[in-house]
């Protein structure tokens, strides 16, 4: 029989990572005194957790599970693959637009160089992740 794709965690591994990143971001922003951003990140983290738990109900809808990244079977995963492939293309396009916008619109004195390099860093990271993901997918057949 097919085994349901559920981890032993109360949420999927992806949601556990998202939750921890949000909470860690909240802690970092709180440490530097940005309370609004810290609260926002904590709220996003809690929303991720709440959505994941809600999606794990036995009678949840497929779209609810896919949106919450809580896949129950192969069809959920296939739907998510299509959705995330579109997100990937949009992320690449938006990153290029972001890079061009920062290069053209932002005066060099306004932002430190490290911040100006963030868009190109993001674009490069996305391309590297894309390449690695393609390589792994091709190897797995």
């Amino acid at each position: 029989m097919s085994t349901p794709s559920r981890s032993r965690l109360p949420v999927s591994t992806t949601n556990a990572v998202l939750l921890n990143v949000c909470l860690a971001g909240g802690v970092v922003t709180a440490i530097v005194g940005r309370w609004l951003e810290a609260g926002l990140l904590a709220a996003v983290g809690l929303a991720v957790l709440a959505m994941a738990i809600y999606a794990r109900r036995p009678n949840s809808r497929d779209i609810t599970r896919v949106n919450a990244i809580e896949y129950r079977d192969e069809r959920d995963k296939r739907i998510a693959q299509v959705g995330f492939s579109v997100v990937g293309v949009v992320a690449l396009v938006v990153s290029v637009i972001e890079f061009v916008a920062v290069t053209v619109l932002v005066d060099n004195r306004d932002w430190p160089p490290a911040v100006q390099l963030l868009p190109v860093g993001q674009l490069l990271l996305l391309c590297v992740v894309w390449g690695v993901a393609n390589s792994i997918a091709a190897r797995r057949g």
């Binding site: 029989m1 097919s2 349901p4 497929d62 599970r65 129950r72 079977d73 192969e74 069809r75 959920d76």
Partner: peptide, 25 residues
């Protein structure tokens, strides 16, 4: 079979082609 009700419905209505593994099961 370890899949959701929606997956069974999608297979029955021809909207989803199951994997070889699920088809065998």
């Amino acid at each position: 079979l370890g899949v959701s009700r929606q997956t069974i419905n999608a297979i029955e209505t021809g909207r989803y082609d199951p994997s070889l593994r699920l088809a065998v099961h």
